[in-house]
Design a protein around this nucleic acid. Structure first.
Length: 509
RNA sequence: GAUUCCGUAGCUCAGCUGGUAGAGCAAUACACUUUUAAUGUAUGGGUCCUGGGUUCGAGUCCCAGCGGGAUCACCA
């Protein structure tokens, strides 16, 4: 392994530290009793009548973190310690930490053998410097872990301008640990993502929904139309697939008698990657017995309004150029009306031939494997979808594109389905679930016909799922939310890689 | 998968019509006991992504490969 000059120097320092009898990776816990942000937010002092200051709290603090900046000034040094809450300045004076004749601790260990990035513990007291910065005056320090690689040095001035930011996307994603250390806004994005997940759980748990786990390894990759990852189980000598969806398993649980189940499902799809697609991604699905898709629209509005508030403190979220308002209620527009609005064509009575003709006139590329459902989907996707910036429910899809959805109670040829569009993208997809086992079997058979026509994404038939439906499933409404995309919206990120800690990358050579 | 742009010091980046590599931060040494993008002086640090080719000579031009970004296709 070829070490850079700076790495060699750090290893030499490591040896010198050991030679001083100091363990650079000590085992004992460090008794941390305060954090950087906590001290900065709560420190108090008073000015007495004679003008002297009286410090009121944090007079015996013990903080720990990475050393991220030093400003030496002879026999004293200002430095910055970064912990999980942020940064705080520390003031280290030689004669305070070395009260005897022996000045090794300051002159050698602190001044020469510590590097930016090292973990240190600081004991001392909080005070305010003469320019007013709340800091910790060190009375002692402990090396907690030596860093052998230099971190990128990112500097910030008084106005918050950032210099030499660590921005290379490849390095940021491959070495996310570095990205998180030096880029505060990256850490904030992921904290928001977790807040969002917590808020969703809170909402669902408050309704007595049951969080469940269902199989990731499936012998039939059902519940969606997508290419699966395939693997092999040695003991059983059978192929297994990583799930593309968990829908059919959650419905089995509704058959089993639960009336509200949910799962944050990591799904896997063996398809292209781009700034809105990662091979593994997270979907929240929930299924509720005795409800329909109208109820689900109201529930979705309530959920998203709460989640936006909990995550950002506001129902308004700036996403790129757009200001999006998650405040309920959201508009509802049928897919046929949407197509009529943006293309002028009324496709509601059209069959396949008519739809192909419309696609031709609109210059939308189609191929022979596409049935009525896919053609309508193509028109909507090309001409309508991107126009719905504010949250909008697109409702009542044609039956051909929705093999798991109940037929519409009054509109022939349609199903009770909605997709929620936000910022021109689909965020959620929901149905009144199909619970008629005979109808479901026919829909699967139609999918088989599509497969024979060359549609390689048509759904597989799951016989056990049909068996479950035959035992009886109550009327149920279900929904799936693209959690990564929701996180992108709520954190104003244009790339899915920015909301996944470790996005998929080609392996390094 | 297609198109296009990019890959130079630990990090952020310069490097013109080809002439043997440069800055800031970081590092090293010295100075400095209230600094905050600390400062001053000095010093060291490079497989210019990899492999070919053209050329007297390639970081620079050409070809191939590897990796990444953007756009498109498939999809959520």
């Amino acid at each position: 392994m070829q070490l850079s000059e700076q790495e060699q120097i750090r290893r030499e320092k490591l040896e010198k530290i050991k030679a001083l009898g100091i363990d650079p990776y000590p085992a004992p816990l460090y008794p941390v009793n305060a954090s950087a942000t906590e001290i900065k937010n709560n420190y108090q002092e008073e000015i007495l009548e004679d003008g002297t200051k009286n410090r009121l709290n944090y007079q015996e603090v013990c903080i720990a973190g990475r050393l991220m900046a030093t400003r030496p000034a002879g026999k004293a040094t200002f430095a910055e310690i970064q912990d999980s809450t942020g940064r705080i300045q520390i003031y280290v004076r030689r004669d305070d930490i070395c009260p005897t004749e022996d000045k090794t601790l300051y002159d050698t260990l602190f001044s020469k053998l510590l590097d930016l990035g090292d973990f240190v513990g600081i004991k001392g007291y909080a005070f305010k410097t003469k320019v007013g910065e709340i800091s910790v005056h060190a009375t002692g320090f402990t090396l907690l872990s030596k860093s052998l690689r230099p971190l990128p040095v990112v500097k910030k001035d008084e106005e918050g301008n950032i210099f030499d930011a660590f921005t290379d996307p490849e390095m940021r994603y491959r070495q996310r640990y570095v990205d998180l250390v030096v880029n505060e806004q990256v850490r904030d994005t992921f904290i928001k993502r977790t807040k969002m997940m917590n808020s969703i759980r809170e909402f669902l748990n408050s309704k007595n929904a049951l969080e469940v786990d269902t199989p990731v390894l499936q012998s039939i990759p059902g519940g969606a139309a997508a290419r699966p990852f395939i693997t092999h189980h040695n003991a059983l000598d059978i192929p297994l697939y990583l799930r593309i969806a968990n829908e059919l398993y959650l419905k089995r649980l509704i058959v089993g008698g639960f009336d509200w189940v949910y799962e944050f499902s990591r799904n896997f799809r063996n398809e292209g990657m781009d700034r809105t697609h990662n091979p593994e991604f997270t979907v929240l699905e929930f299924y509720v017995a005795y409800k329909d898709y109208f109820w689900m629209m109201e529930t979705t509005e309530q959920l998203l309004e709460k989640v936006a508030l909990d995550t950002n403190g506001n129902t308004y979220v700036q996403v790129g150029e757009n200001m999006i308002n998650f405040k309920a209620p959201y508009k509802r527009i049928s897919i046929y009306d949407a197509i009529k609005t943006y293309t002028g064509f009324d496709v509601s009575e059209m069959e396949e031939d008519g739809l192909r003709d419309v696609c031709k006139q609109l210059k939308i590329e189609v191929d022979n494997s596409m049935g009525k459902g896919k053609l309508i989907d193509a028109i909507f996707g090309e001409r309508c979808e991107h126009n719905y910036i504010q949250p909008t429910f697109i409702i009542d899809y044609p039956v051909e594109m929705s093999p798991l959805t109940k037929k519409h109670r009054s509109k022939n040829g349609l199903v009770e389905r909605f997709e929620l569009m936000i910022n021109g993208k689909e965020i959620a997809n929901a149905y009144s679930e199909l619970n008629d086992p005979i109808d479901q079997r026919e829909r699967f058979e139609d999918q088989l016909k599509l497969q024979e026509r060359g549609d390689d994404e048509a759904m597989f038939i799951d016989q056990d799922f049909l068996r479950a439906l035959e035992y009886g499933m109550p009327p149920t409404s279900g929904i799936g939310f693209g959690i990564d995309r929701l996180a992108m919206l709520l954190t104003n990120q244009a790339s899915i890689q920015e909301v996944l800690f470790f996005p998929q990358m080609r392996p390094e050579k």
